[in-house]
């Protein structure tokens, strides 16, 4: 297989990998909302959605300036002339 064909297939393989990963975890996760005393793991910093605002902002700025799609995580961030 040529290197160009490998590159062609790279995103498809990544997409399939992510899909398989998600399917595997979801299949074992029926909804069982935790009691208050069971939330120790949920309280960990790494479980936070958006735990590093400066990092998130910079990455979103980069992607906003290089790709057509944006948003999805909140409202009111304002615009810039980079796109």
């Amino acid at each position: 297989m040529t290197s160009s064909r490998l590159l062609y297939r790279a995103p498809t393989r990544i997409a399939l990998l992510l899909l398989a990963l998600a399917s595997q975890v979801i299949s074992g996760c029926a909804m069982q909302p935790p009691q208050a005393f069971e939330k120790g793991n949920l309280a960990k910093r790494e479980m936070t959605l958006g735990s590093d605002p400066l990092e998130d902002a910079f990455n979103q700025h980069v992607y906003f300036s290089k790709e057509a799609a944006s948003g999805g995580t909140g409202v009111g961030g304002g615009g810039c002339g980079c796109n």
Partner: peptide, 28 residues
Amino acid sequence: TDHDNDKLSPPALTVGSITLAALALPGL
């Protein structure tokens, strides 16, 4: 809930339930 008892808990753990991301970028 009970936070970790780890004294090295990083900032966001004790930040608790607050909005952090308020940055001048689209959708932030």
